[in-house]
Design a protein around this nucleic acid. Structure first.
Lengths: 342, 342
DNA sequence: CTGAAAGCGCTTACAG
DNA sequence: CTGAAAGCGCTTACAG
């Protein structure tokens, strides 16, 4: 910048004003400075700028998601990015892998680099370490799950209602032995969906069967194995409710492997690619991960603009998409009409 | 930091040394400083640190990909992130949407924030604007496609050989009217794959048919439409080679819609989720996007460590996965034995 | 081994 | 409207 000032024969202050478009500068000086910038190939140093400016804004935010390569979180990411982009703000991104220590490392590394705000998919565990950053003025929004031991704006899907709907769909097809396959019970979405599943069972006066509830499934492979185990057991389920995209995929693989994809009903939480093309089509309760990301981004920038109201919670509805797998009837089921006549 | 120094009754220099683990500091002072840091809840300011330190390293890199929510690029992203992570380096990420201006904006914004290096999936167009940054010491690696008008380390898949293999698979099944559906011809991977397709046709002495070559398809929906058009034409193809994951999905949707998924052969470039589960299974030439990302990350950190050799190119092989769709024979085809006897 | 001082590249009152 | 000067929070020769 010094060289630009020298070349344009103006002061540093003037160069700064031209670059930031702040204050009134005589058009001729603006031109001289702009020419000097082009001539010298000057690159502004945003780091130094952030350090000195009164608002300390870095025009960057941090995003912490479970895994950038999971399609669900990748869509959340895009939602956040698109909002940040219109504000000309850059995004740091990191995968926490549902590891509390990793989440914290990322958050602290982002904070050390002066991000203006943080969008985080909080792990199980404790987010109170963020209190300090919140108080020091970093905007904070949680997405997909609420934070623990800390208050902050939150955007989630309507997990419980969605899970209830999916389970009801299976019940409506005549099932009573419905397995639940879910993520670790420490994960908010997993327990909410389990609760929704319980809601639907209770509403239909179906007794819960603990052996049909399999939690702790973190990816496709364990879900595939759990499905095989469930179906090989003494009193196997006639329907599966899978609580997450990767688990749904694992269950599909297992059903194929056993050749039972047309016999065992399946409803999944979260849509999957080609879910309509597989045979039978996969019935799901779809979330809108892109919308989750956008809402989170918008809440964040609202805070950055200085809004100081109490933390809000946005709940994004889900949508049932019946494609066949969830409408498979149990073996030996009485026809629907016969049942309803009783 | 001033407050930490005061609380620990040492100088700023000593606090800095303790934080950075540089130089020898008396254990007792280390303890006093550490205690003060904990007590005060001190957060290090990496921005100020970068500005002052002699090597100017920010422990951050920038990643520019076409779209963070495309599963292919999301996997590349994860590969880069995993390498950065072991170096305790953070990643800025942005989607260029295959827009040259957007790519440049992102690169310049990253550079202004002092990234140590940049991993970029270069758009069609001109990357020479990066020369300035390269000369100023920012490490540069290109992934998925080589840069234009600039030299730099590059990691790509073996697009041409992979496309040749996929096309050969269709030829081996007896097809001679094979359509090619690809991305914009300005995109390196699209033209390489087209070239590989041409290679295979030439090797089998099959005349090219311009009307069977559809380029400019940027996502699933245009690919779906193009497939329908091709198959509704006067002399439709008996097989399709789709040059990219989203295009493959579009073609699958179209074939279903027409009910011809068991009649028209299909081979795709890049694997897709559930490709083995759809019926028929989708034959693909699989890339390893995670490996592309890892290689790119490793090349970048090699440069950051100061390696000054000429730019390298890493070519990652592809792998044919025959699952059925690519092995469908053309209608009225003579049995394979009969053909080979001639 | 430790501290006082200079300075990284900027922005911002302040004075003119 | 413009410039000289102070200073953001750090690191780093330099001297002791």
């Amino acid at each position: 910048m010094r060289e630009v000032a020298r070349a344009a024969e103006v002061s540093l202050a003037t160069v700064s004003r031209v670059i930031n478009g702040s204050g009134e500068v005589h058009p001729e000086l603006v031109k001289r400075v702009s020419d000097a910038i082009d001539l010298l190939g000057y690159r502004h140093n945003a780091t130094a700028s952030t350090l000195r400016r009164s608002d300390r804004q870095s025009a960057s935010i941090g995003l912490i998601i479970e895994d950038v390569s999971n399609p669900f979180f990748a869509a959340v990411h895009r939602g956040v990015e698109d909002v940040a982009r219109v504000h000309r703000v850059l995004t740091f991104v990191g995968s926490s892998d549902e590891d509390e220590a990793r989440e914290r490392e990322l958050a602290e590394a982002f904070a050390a680099r002066g991000v203006d705000g943080l969008v985080v998919v909080p792990c199980a565990g404790d987010q109170s370490y963020l209190l300090r950053d919140q108080q020091s003025g970093i905007a904070l929004v949680f997405v997909d799950r609420p934070p623990h031991f800390l208050r902050g704006d939150t955007v989630t899907s309507d997990n419980r209602a969605g899970a209830r709907t999916a389970t009801q769909q299976l019940i409506a097809a005549g099932h009573r032995r419905i397995a639940f396959l879910g993520d670790r019970p420490t994960v908010f979405t997993a327990t909410e969906r389990l609760a929704g599943y319980h809601d639907a069972l209770a509403a239909a006066a179906i007794q819960r069967t603990p052996t049909l509830e399999r939690l702790g499934l973190t990816s496709s492979e364990p879900a595939r194995q759990a499905t095989i185990e469930l179906l090989s057991g003494p009193t196997p389920p006639t329907a599966l409710f899978t609580g997450q995209n990767l688990i749904t995929i694992g269950a599909i693989l297992a059903l194929r492997e056993l050749g039972r994809q047309r016999v065992i009903a399946l409803a999944g939480f979260d849509d999957i690619v080609l879910g309509e093309i597989v045979e039978p089509g996969i019935t799901v309760v779809a979330q809108d991960p892109y919308a989750l990301g956008r809402h989170a981004g918008e809440l964040l920038f609202r805070r950055l603009r200085g809004e100081a109201s109490d933390p809000t919670t946005v709940v994004v509805p889900t949508r049932l998409i019946a494609r066949g797998s969830g409408e498979i009837r149990p073996p030996h089921a009485q026809p629907a009409r016969a049942r309803s006549r009783r």
